[in-house]
Design a protein around this nucleic acid. Sequence first.
DNA 1: AGCACGATGCTCT
DNA 2: GAGCATCGTGCTT
Length: 189
Amino acid sequence: MAAPLPRDFYARPTLTVARELLGARLVRILDGLRLAGIITETEAYIGETDLGCHARAGRTRRTEVMYGPPGRAYVYFTYGMHWCLNVVTEADGFPAAVLIRAIRPVEGIEVIAARRQGRDTQGPAKLTQALGIDGAHNGADLCSLTGGLWIEAGEPVPDQAVTTGPRVGLYTVPEPWKSQPWRFLAHLA
DNA sequence: AGCACGATGCTCT
DNA sequence: GAGCATCGTGCTT
């Protein structure tokens, strides 16, 4: 029944993973209830040379998880109040990840709506708030059922329903990194 | 529908 | 001490 995507899925080029995560199902077991949403927006962050990536600072306490094996969660805290969820990609030792930026709720919709007080789940900090994801999940293995957080295969999104564009919020990042079209959006029916 | 702004605290220099 | 991979509100058009 529950079948997390295997580690091989994540051990690939980050842009490939970011593209293929569109349409996949992000699952969270919260208080024994299953909550889930279809991933509709992602962004790729690729290595120390990508000046938009946190790993540009090298290996630090914060970025440590990105240097580890693929298929783990990289959850970071920002703006003094928000958590953002990434999945670690590429080979063990290479720091890269995909930021999950938006979901469409499909399971546990009422719980999600209550947690969001009726507001939407389109935004990286909105979906973590909706699903109860925070720093406790940093480093969690998404290829296992034990952490209460994983991703399952979903309906593939055809190319014609995908658009790309620059990553969001990189105001002070220099070119060409600021404008790389490493953001992926799924336009579902 | 769009823009400006304040909240709020961790991380790295 | 500066900057931040954001969000919600409130005000303007």
